[in-house]
Design a protein around this nucleic acid. Structure first.
Length: 589
RNA sequence: GCACUUGUAGCUCAAUUGGAUAGAGCACCUGACUACGGAUCAGGAGGUUAGGGGUUCGACUCCCUUCAAGUGCACCA
């Protein structure tokens, strides 16, 4: 569309003797209730045209029609100049862009980006909140790849700390040697069970102490269980063999469980970082910051940074006893990641409860003069809430990731079997299809919403399979494939003689041509929702096309071939778009 | 208390980043299959964009303010 902007610049120079920046020309898609495909907003031009918006539009429109063979007509409504482009133009675009093999994938841009996501704790299984995180991270990585970046997906596993010791301690006390095999339980669920058990017993102890006259705060600090857990953490840090062995054993259970969940979710990683390795990092950065005068030391020897001039607080970066806090290790880890990969950008997919933390983290790194700090970005997403409120692992009010996926597949099975179209499927094919559809519904449901918004999930209301959903789009794909199977072969040469477009064809071409810009937009905003809404729009537009005009029994062979080709292009774009969301599309369903 | 985020149809979400009469889906009502796949399509009804002020040719979008919801403000991670 650049040629229209350029010609409009010329028109304004010629008509009104004014130079205007390309950015000041506002091009948009013509609304579907008006004729045309491209619209120029002419209100801003009246300043120098000294004429009404209508007259300005008419003058520019007439100029463009004269100058550009691609412009076949125009109309003006108020300050909107609606331009129609010729069928030849659209057919050329279809051939050169949409039908070229590389459509929907940008050439490598030479930039490297890291996407850190998932980042689970190893003391409990994944829940719906993690699911949103994982799907977002994976999808954003795919989108950035399509936009031309080299992507490194990382997972920073929180595998140490007091919360891990809680499950370990509970298992040691009451586990009686239980293993995932003996319990017939996924390892992460088994460990989670002991985490919950710890919390229950801990609460009993707190109540007992309170009954003896201690305050809530005292009781929480003095309960024998929490003291034991703290001792265990100290032993872990000291490298006590027994504790380390137990830690390794239980973490291994968890990793086996996570691997299964990740596989079902369809997500993967290029590099794992473990906090047991990284928690000691960052102290050299503290030294560096002190030398540079970015940090200051208080009398008690603790180290701080003063960010009050930016509307933030003073923030502790090292304890008075010289040990690390969260910020310390994140500073160190950021440096480690950069040393490992020298990436241009680094995306942290982390919930919005940590907005402040990342604001501070990035500010500190910038003040330290790290040139790569400009490329850091916190992809902050909203919490997933239940109708009852927030999910809490310890209180058991969570939607478990594995259970949820099972339920989705089960629902997909019921829905699909009710349609009765599976006669030719083998048992294995059916299982695979139920997985594809169930996960398609779930993933689309979670990804179509703008990441920064909080998400409400009602477990009692099943995720829809009709309308604005994953299965709707998957169905459209299956339907396209069905048509193409029946057509057997597409003759691209026959399609070339096609010239006169009908509205439904043109609408589809116009929309298909937007795909690359949509990828750019979603990559820029780190938002899979942009892709999700586009693919839905595309599927809807195809369905309209499909219902409105005949494909296989078109009036003449060129029409038939052209429409088959267009169907093929739409199917491929749907497939690519869904792939960017991490959603598979079936050939039949 | 301070800071950040959010508020759009009964419900779940859009709105080309300041542009036309604010669009979809679900639910509700009416139509379309001796079939290129009805998990579809065509149509109807449903709105003071939380309230109020301002900026301008033009505001869901920007500014101020009130209200509501969420999150954060540890020598926890």
């Amino acid at each position: 569309m650049n040629f229209i902007v350029a010609a409009t610049k010329k028109a304004i120079k010629h008509l009104y003797n004014t130079d205007i920046a390309a950015d000041d020309i506002n091009l948009q898609e013509t609304r579907k209730e008006f004729d045309g495909q491209v619209t120029i907003v002419t209100f801003p031009f009246t300043k120098f045209s000294k004429k009404s918006p209508e007259q300005t539009g008419n003058e520019i429109g007439a100029y463009l029609k004269d100058e550009l063979t691609e412009v076949s007509g125009f109309n003006v409504i108020k300050g909107f100049l609606n331009i129609s482009l010729s069928d030849d133009y659209w057919l050329d675009q279809l051939k050169e862009e949409v039908l070229s093999p590389g459509f929907g994938v940008f050439k490598p841009n030479g930039q490297k980006v890291m996407v850190e996501y998932s980042s689970p704790n190893t003391n409990k299984p994944l829940h719906l909140g993690h699911v949103r995180n994982n799907l977002l991270g994976f999808s954003v990585a795919e989108i950035l790849k399509a936009a031309g970046y080299e992507v490194i997906k990382t997972n920073l596993v929180n595998d140490r700390g007091i919360h891990i010791c809680k499950s370990m301690l509970a298992w040691q006390k009451w586990g009686d040697g239980e293993t995932p095999e003996l319990a017939c339980m996924k390892g992460d669920h088994l460990v989670g069970k002991y985490y919950v058990l710890f919390d229950r017993e801990y609460k009993v102890q707190i109540e007992a102490l309170k009954a003896k006259g201690q305050t809530e705060e005292e009781a929480k600090k003095n309960a024998p269980l929490i003291r034991e857990a703290q001792e265990m953490l100290q032993k872990w840090e000291a490298g006590d063999k027994q504790v380390i062995d137990l830690w390794k054993k239980m973490n291994a259970w968890v990793y086996t469980g996570f691997a299964e969940t990740y596989k079902n979710l369809g997500v993967s990683f290029d590099k794992f970082y473990y906090e047991s390795d990284t928690y000691i990092l960052g102290k050299d950065i503290i030294e560096e910051g002190l030398e540079k005068g970015v940090f200051f030391r208080k009398e008690d020897n603790s180290v701080w940074i003063d960010l009050t001039d930016e509307g933030l607080d003073q923030k502790l970066v090292l304890r008075s006893d010289g040990t690390s806090v969260y910020m310390t290790q994140d500073l160190g880890t950021a440096q480690l990641k950069y040393n490992d990969f020298h990436m241009d950008k680094s995306i942290y997919v982390v919930g919005n409860e940590q907005d402040y933390h990342f604001k501070v983290l990035f500010t500190i790194l910038k003040r330290l003069g790290k040139p790569w700090a400009e490329g850091l970005y916190h992809l902050s997403y909203g919490m997933v809430d239940l109708p009852s409120g927030k999910m809490k692992s310890r209180e058991g009010t969570v939607v478990d990731a594995d259970d949820l996926m099972d339920e989705m597949e089960q629902t997909a099975k019921e829905q699909t079997e009710a349609k009765g179209k599976l006669d030719s499927f083998s048992a294995a094919e059916k299982e695979r299809l139920f997985h594809i559809i169930g996960m398609g519904a779930l993933k689309y449901f979670l990804l179509k919403v703008d990441p920064k918004k909080r998400l409400l999930f009602d477990p009692n209301e099943s995720v829809d399979f009709d309308g604005h959903t994953g299965p709707f789009i998957q169905y459209t794909h299956a339907r396209i494939r069905s048509v193409l199977r029946k057509a057997a072969e597409i003759n691209a040469n026959a399609a070339k003689s096609y010239r006169q477009l009908v509205k439904e064809e043109r609408d589809l071409i116009v929309l298909l041509l937007r795909f690359p810009e949509i990828i750019k937009e979603s990559a820029k905003g780190y938002s899979p929702a942009v892709i999700a809404n586009y693919v839905y729009e595309l599927a809807k537009t195809y369905n309209k096309f499909y219902h409105q005009i005949s494909i296989l029994s078109a009036d003449d062979e060129p029409s038939r071939q052209f429409r088959l080709q267009l169907s093929d292009a739409a199917g491929k774009a749907i497939n690519k778009g869904m792939k960017l969301l991490g959603i598979e599309v079936p050939e039949r369903m």
